[in-house]
Design a protein around this nucleic acid. Structure first.
Lengths: 321, 321
DNA sequence: ATTCCGTATGGGATCGTTACCACAAGCTAG
DNA sequence: CTAGCTTGTGGTAACGATCCCATACGGAAT
């Protein structure tokens, strides 16, 4: 009987033994769907990310999975490729599955709102599109970008290019703000023309954008690529042109992914501790689920990033490119 | 009513319209658990891999997810970290969820057998531990390893070190066999002492193993690292020692991951087309689910790998290390 | 006008689990 | 000795969707 297995209710020791033996013998495993139907609560958590092939998201998902597994939950993982309609599709699936919670790197506020309104706990990870609904676990993007920009300014750079894909999400907006803040603090005017916005979402596009920036501004002495994909494109373009790093040009990145410590020179970057970001997101969600209380404020965590200084940044030299 | 939504059964156009309108208005989404319970078939597929942070597995999972999503299924992803007990835990979860199928990079034959005996379709991806149960989608490891070893032999190398972690799974065994086969075909005796077995599952251990190999065999002119993690460790150790690649030592790898084309020199390797491996695994599973027939033989796919020749391999030179 | 057929619709029964209730048995206290 | 309580056990309803069957209704044919 159910009482033996769940531990609730009474069951004589003898009966309990007999039941357990039978269970083991025939390999009986209770039906999770029936359980969910009856209990109105599932052990599945929806996880929605942009791109599993990007090590940043893969690490995030790995952190989430680890924490969930430890707590006896499991992860239903969906890739939305940054597309709002795929995101909504997944949201509908999660609703159908009656998951108690969802962790997502959100694309549209509508997705977050829909989930919240159906009573599902939501954690926005890495970026935040909805201030009204759901908790959030974010990297401190402004602080991180300010750190790395200050590092470049401290080295003596005055003309620092910024390669960035989008600035509407909190992640991009924060990094842009940090870039500006560091300039302001150092009393160096930030030149808007040195900012390559909408640099694209793949290395090729980022490479082209970087190339354009280098062509139009021969006085650039450093480039800051605002994520790992952009950094990959930037580095490839820089290598293609035979520009010496860091002698002719310093390069700094955001997100610490394996190749950055493999290449020579190794790349100075900001580590977001992406696995930890995932773990904390799961933790926040699990805590939410543990408290029965429906609406007790909003949790927003900002994880401090870490500046990892390597060999791709150095004081500027007078050598023209 | 259910008839309107599922499309089965009759429903007057007027009634259908009214029902659909109400559905949209209140945001009703049918309960997947109730459906699974009643229909005895779920749209969840269990996916069990070793390490999401390893780009090979991440790509595999991404391929699986893409294909499943397209077919209207979703992926419950579990990391087993190569541990048999975690694998069995996940198997039990999948049984509880009544998933119709599981795709896994298997660790123990018991996991595969248990699933199969409970009537769950199984696809073994990347490696095969059970010949009796379940389909398999594999890389042609022997062919791939033979290709890259032949490439080194053709360049003139006669003393080629092999760094490999395990040789019990089909993946490792196949690569070892390919290494031998290429030697045999070229009439070059393979020296067993040049094979560093059990080189470990992280870059540090692989680096140490590579170091030992280099120390004990100063006549080595090439090293073949049998997967991407081993290659990372090997490269780091080689760089640490200041050994010039490919002038003093050629390096070849297995699995094409991003850093291999980023580093200088870029690394010659064998691409397994890991995303495609995942896609095909899902395809095989979906086909299996489509045919009602329970036991119609066993599908085993061997995907042809591709030798990607880059700059880390060159003819040996006389320069001693 | 009555029968018959085809189409449309409502009403269970069912899937596996669990929460709850009724009841039985044993025990203590008045 | 019996009333009232504790402790253990079996039975049953309910979760939500779906399948099947019974039934009702309209129209056509005899």
């Amino acid at each position: 009987m159910s009482r033996v297995l769940s531990g609730n209710g009474y069951a004589a020791a003898a009966v309990r033994e007999r039941v357990l033996a039978a269970v083991r013998r025939i390999g009986y495993v209770p039906d999770a769907n029936a359980r969910t139907l009856r209990n109105r609560s599932s052990r599945s958590i929806g996880v929605l990310i942009s791109d599993l092939r990007d090590p940043f998201y893969a690490d995030l998902a790995a952190g989430v999975e680890q924490e969930l597994r430890t707590a006896g939950y499991h992860m239903v993982l969906v890739n939305d490729n940054g597309q709002a309609h795929e995101e909504m599709r997944a949201v509908t699936e999660f609703l159908a599955m009656r998951v108690p919670g969802v962790i997502l790197t959100p694309v549209s506020a509508r997705a977050v709102k829909t989930l919240h309104q159906q009573g599902i706990r939501v954690v926005q990870a890495d970026r935040r599109v909805s201030r009204r609904y759901g908790d959030a676990v974010l990297g401190a993007n402004e602080a991180g970008a300010e750190m790395v920009t200050r590092h470049l300014l401290d080295l003596g750079h005055r003309r620092i290019g910024l390669v960035i894909d989008e600035t509407r999400w909190t992640s991009g907006a924060g990094r842009l703000a940090g870039y500006h803040a560091a300039h302001q603090a150092a009393g160096v005017p930030a030149d808007e023309r040195l900012i390559a916005r909408n640099a694209g979402f793949d290395p090729e596009a980022a490479g082209k954008a970087t190339g354009r920036l280098l062509d139009e501004h021969p006085d650039l002495t450093a480039v800051f690529a605002a994520n790992n994909v952009l950094a990959q494109g930037a580095l490839q373009e820089i290598q293609r042109r035979g520009v010496a790093v860091p002698r002719q040009l310093s390069l700094a990145a955001y997100d610490d992914v394996p190749w950055m410590s493999m290449v020579r020179p190794s790349i100075t970057t900001v580590s977001q501790h992406s696995v930890e970001l995932g773990r904390r997101s799961a933790r926040v969600l699990l805590d939410r689920l543990a408290e029965g209380d429906p609406d007790r404020g909003t949790t927003v965590l900002n994880l401090e990033p870490e500046l990892v200084v390597r060999s791709s940044t150095a004081p500027p030299t007078r050598n023209p490119r």
